[in-house]
Design a protein around this nucleic acid. Sequence first.
RNA 1: GGCCCUGUCGUCUAGUCUGGCCUAGGACACAGGCUUUUCAAGCCUGGUACACGGGUUCGAAUCCCGUCGGGGCUACCA
Length: 467
Amino acid sequence: MIRVRFAPSPTGHLHMGGVRTALFNWLFARHEGGKFLLRIEDTDKNRSKKEYEDEIINVLKWLGLDWDEEVNRQSERLSLYEGYLKKLFESGLAYYCFCTLEELEAESQAQLTQGLPPKYSGKCRHLKREEVEERLKKEPAVIRFKVPNRVVAFHDMIRGNVEFNAELIGDIVIAKSLQEPLYNFAAAVDDFEMKITHVIRGEEHISNTPKQILIQEALGFDRLEYAHLPLILGPDRKKLSKRFLDKSMDDYIKDGYLAEAIINFLVLLGWHPKEDREVISLADMVKEFSLNRVQKAGAIFNPEKLDWLNGYYLRSLPLKIIVEKLKKFIPTAWLKKEKLLEKVIEIEKERMRRLNEFPDLAGFFFDLPDYPVLILNWQKTNAATTLDNLKAVAEALRAVPKEDFSKKTFESSLMLLADARGRGEIFWPLRVALSGREASPGPLDILEILGKEESLQRIQAAIKKLS
RNA sequence: GGCCCUGUCGUCUAGUCUGGCCUAGGACACAGGCUUUUCAAGCCUGGUACACGGGUUCGAAUCCCGUCGGGGCUACCA
């Protein structure tokens, strides 16, 4: 039975990189019919925050990346780590270290200036038992793991064989105390306890892998399968880091991106179906996903393609669903004019790439914005001609019955005018009069949505501006 | 600096394992055109890439070696 986990630490906002890791784990589990587990790595008490954990959970739910079993929190299983820590002490593979941060810093500086790789000297490794006990009473200490001097090799499902010389690592700190385990140790213990079979995570963890393997071996755990995903890079080619000013997933949600677009976009960052398909449903991803096809090199995040995909998905959504999703993005006054709103969405949705673009795009339907008179003129047409044309349009429109004010009923008379005076001469000023904009849906469509009364009023306002 | 990973259009990628179908395909972006007025959508067309240098081979994006480039890690963070 395949079991994978997404193991974020709640020390910052969940960003695209984290979501992609979650997605690939989820896809792998669903494809293989295994389990996808969520583990909150909150061993760092100072940096972990409940609000970040809530955010992780909410975002995962919003995306539809459902996990199996209950959420695991490392902070809730401290006694577990303590047990394994003691085991390590018993087998002589762990020891207390009393070196201060200052000493350590000086030590690595000295090594660096000599051109040597910085590595803990192992100074406290051979302290006498009695001395340790004495010093423990009055000095702060951390727990180190005896890293053996040998080569650690492991198989990576994406990269093949990877080798590290553990000699270069030095004895790593695995816990600040019996109750305060650190990442590499806690992860090794939890992967075993949670019966994880495959570790799928970002490439930044590749150098942690030998450390975790060594701890697993010391504890007598079985070896796991590994797959290190290529990093998602920013435009500067550097990895997206949660500590710096990259956008959180939450921000993308607030900008009006759809879950399906984000997932589709992210899956394409490092993976691709066999055929030349860009748009792929979640069901097909699950069906076709395979780690063999995952890219090795990092991928630069391209927001334009995300926007394109989002627009694509938006256009394919049923009207009612768009209305529902738009609720968080528009003034309540618009919501009250439900009929009008639906018509506006129908006509504007092909122009919308993000939900948050809608208010700007469609605002003129609800309130005519002020606009400069000059833009009423089509190309080189002068104001007098425009005025005349607009008057002719108004006259033609007045003849159409209010109850049956639709494209069907006014199109022919307007086209007649347009053919006589020029398409641009008629339609351009009409559009501007109706929308106050230079770019908008077709004036005929706007006319129909606005209705006779409102349309005529707006045209009248334009005529007034011109006279 | 050291260790590890990695290198196909500006970007995401197909093709690399199992050399020939690749005068390198698709998508985003860009440019031009069509679509009875603008914008959008749609359709059509176009430009741009196998990092470089050596091999191996009848033949290399694909195999080998070297060089160069990019990234990650190098915490009592994860």
